[in-house]
Every structure is written in structure tokens, then in C-alpha cells.
């Protein structure tokens, strides 16, 4: 049983299968765990922000990289979960079960919208370009809708939707009387990111994952092996929407607010960019790119640099032109080659 699980985690659905890799992986996890002991709560909180975007990015890798379906609008599920959490937890303020109810409600709402949307696009067997543009339309409409919810008439219970200024005062996550903030929120994010990564690796190494990858390579060939590819694409879409929802939930718990721009065009571009620059066919590559790119954007924009989005857009164009498989993946392969050469050199 244990060996089977280890086998699922360690399989070749993602880069890094060697012993050296796993040693490095454990060291990296330990370093991340030690980081908050060395820095202020404010810095740790910034890194929490990079971490909380990772589930969304991994969802993009799952959907686009492994299943071959591109979505430009997964931030819609990020936003739906965030707003739903805000409404539920906000209305249950003071009740310690409020945040948990908010999380469940947020996940459910995102899954519901994603499920209905995915039913239409996958069961219609539409051309592959239709899905990205309809997902984009959905998120743009959501932004437009949320943007015009200013004023007192747009409230759910005691919570105001807030128009372009967004929803504020969203409660932090808590279990019992323990509230996740600052350092503890950092570890909360870290555990969730780790669980998402390991869980997805297991999923993608399983039979289900192998079939999903085969659908990406050749949908018709896979269907003629007896698989209902529509059902699998549907499931992967909903799963990736849930991952986006997890990020959305963490986001509102982190900053205690959310605005419509979180589901706008610029926000929608980011997960696609993280996945493309990292290398969408590897979970780990996307994970690394998410941390690095978030750090870059944060650093640039905190210095008041107006060129942040131009640089990010240029990074996307350059990646697509010159590193179509992703920069992190290509670096990882290069490192693999160099170390292999060294090893074989030492052996002879």
C-alpha cells in the first residue's frame, strides 16, 4: 500500500524522479518551513501571497498542460469562491464555523458554475479555440457585473458587494478559536500547496492521469479506446476550477478583501503566463514559475514601476516564441543533461 502510494507520487508524470531530486525537494520544503523564523511577519505574509496563487497555477497546468484544454478565465472561479466566502463568512461573523461554511460554499459555488459551463462546451464537442474565448467572456462579464454592484441595494444579508471598490472586512480563516494570520497563515498556505502538488502528482500518475494525457495528445484515438473523453475533460475542468477556488479562498483570507479587478483581464492573464513561462506540462515547473514571477511583479510594482505588466506580457510573447515548452522545463532538462554527463563521466 505504502509502496503503491510512493510509486504514484514518484512516477514520471512530472519532472524530477531521481533520488537526488527528492532530496532537493525535501530540503526546499524545509527551507520554506524555516523561512518565517528568519523574517518579519510582513515579509512572511508577502511570501504567503506568492504561495496562495500556486493552486490556481497548478490548476492551469492540469487543464492546459496535461489535458490540452486552455482556459483564459479561471480567475472567474477564483473570484466566485472569494466572493461567496466573503458573503457566507461575513454574514456568520462571530460564529467560529462561519469560515468553514464559507470555504465549503465557495468551493461548491465555483464547482457549480464550472460544471454547467464545462457541460456545454465539452458535451458539444466544440473546436478547441472556443473554450479559451468563452471562458474569457465569462470572466469579463463577471467583472462587469461585480463592478456595478456599488451601493446599498447590492448587499447579501449584511455584506455589501461593493462595486469597483470591492468587498472588504472579509473574516480570516479559523478552526475553532484559532485564527490563521501572519506566520500561521504562511504555514496554512504551505501545507495546502504541498497537498495540492502531491495530490496532483498522484492523480496524474494514476490510470486517470495517463488517460487525460492521452486525450491531450489525440482525443479521437483515445475515444476509440473506449473512453468517454467528454466526461474526463469535464471532470478535469471542474477540478482545475476547484484549484482556482482554493486560491481565491486563500486570497480573501489573506487580504480580507476582494475587488472585481481580481476577475478582470489582467488578472486572467497571470495564471496563463505562469503556466506558459514555467512549462505547462510540468506541475513543478509551473509552481516554481509562479513563485518567481509573483516575486518579480511584486518587486517591480512595489517600486512603482509602471512597466510591470508590459514586462510580464513581453515575457509571455518571448516564451511562446523562443521557449515554447517553458523556461523552467528547458532549464531543468539542461541541468539533467549536465549532471548526467558528469555522472557518466565519473563512471568511466
Amino acid at each position: 500500500m505504502t509502496s503503491k502510494i510512493l510509486h504514484l507520487i514518484g512516477g514520471d508524470a512530472d519532472i524530477g524522479t531521481s533520488k537526488t531530486f527528492w532530496i532537493g525537494f525535501v530540503i526546499a520544503v524545509i527551507l520554506f518551513a524555516l523561512y518565517p523564523t528568519q523574517v518579519s511577519e510582513f515579509r512572511a505574509s508577502n511570501v504567503s501571497y506568492y504561495l496562495l496563487n500556486i493552486p490556481l497555477a497548478l490548476g492551469m497546468a492540469l487543464l492546459w498542460g496535461y489535458c490540452g484544454v486552455l482556459s483564459f478565465g479561471h480567475v472567474a472561479y477564483f473570484g466566485i469562491a472569494g466572493y461567496t466566502y466573503g458573503i457566507i463568512a461575513g454574514n456568520m461573523a462571530g460564529n467560529s464555523f462561519g469560515p468553514i461554511a464559507g470555504v465549503l460554499g465557495g468551493l461548491l459555488a465555483s464547482a457549480l458554475v464550472a460544471g454547467i459551463f464545462a457541460y456545454f462546451v465539452f458535451y458539444s464537442r466544440v473546436r478547441e479555440w472556443i473554450i479559451p474565448i468563452l471562458t474569457l467572456v465569462l470572466t469579463l462579464l463577471l467583472e462587469t457585473f461585480l463592478g456595478q454592484t456599488a451601493g446599498y441595494q447590492w448587499r447579501v444579508g449584511s455584506v455589501l458587494l461593493g462595486g469597483y471598490n470591492g468587498m472588504t472586512g472579509i473574516p480570516a480563516f479559523q478552526i475553532g478559536s484559532f485564527v490563521f494570520m501572519g506566520y500561521s497563515f504562511y504555514y496554512f498556505c504551505m501545507v495546502i500547496v504541498l497537498a495540492c502538488y502531491v495530490g496532483l502528482r498522484m492523480l496524474l500518475n494514476s490510470k486517470f492521469g495517463q488517460v487525460v494525457t492521452a486525450i491531450r495528445e489525440d482525443p479521437l484515438r483515445t475515444e476509440i479506446f473506449g473512453y468517454d473523453i467528454r466526461a474526463r475533460q469535464w471532470l478535469v475542468f471542474v477540478l482545475s476550477a476547484l484549484l482556482a477556488a482554493i486560491s481565491g479562498l486563500l486570497y480573501v483570507q489573506w487580504g480580507n478583501y476582494i475587488t472585481p479587478s481580481q476577475v478582470g483581464l489582467l488578472s486572467a492573464a497571470l495564471p496563463v503566463i505562469w503556466a506558459a513561462v514555467g512549462g505547462r506540462t510540468s506541475l513543478l515547473a509551473v509552481l516554481i514559475a509562479t513563485i518567481v514571477l509573483n516575486w518579480v511583479t511584486f518587486t517591480l510594482s512595489s517600486q512603482g514601476n509602471q512597466y510591470a505588466m508590459v514586462i510580464i506580457g513581453a515575457a509571455l510573447v518571448i516564451t511562446m516564441l523562443f521557449f515554447p515548452r517553458g523556461i523552467v522545463i528547458m532549464l531543468a532538462e539542461w541541468i539533467g543533461k549536465v549532471t548526467n554527463r558528469k555522472n557518466s563521466g565519473a563512471a568511466t
Partner: peptide
């Protein structure tokens, strides 16, 4: 990007970001 539909979508999106932000600047 001919023959790579999704690649074309992504790259033109990158172009749109640059154009929008560039015009703003």
C-alpha cells in the same frame, strides 16, 4: 504559430497586454 491554434491564442494575448499597457504609458 500557424497550425498551433492554442499557441497563437496565447501569444496574441501577450501582444494585447503589451499594447494595452503600452498605450496607457
Amino acid at each position: 504559430f500557424y497550425g498551433r491554434e492554442l499557441g497563437a491564442l496565447v501569444v496574441t494575448w501577450g501582444i494585447s497586454l503589451i499594447l494595452g499597457q503600452g498605450t496607457l504609458l
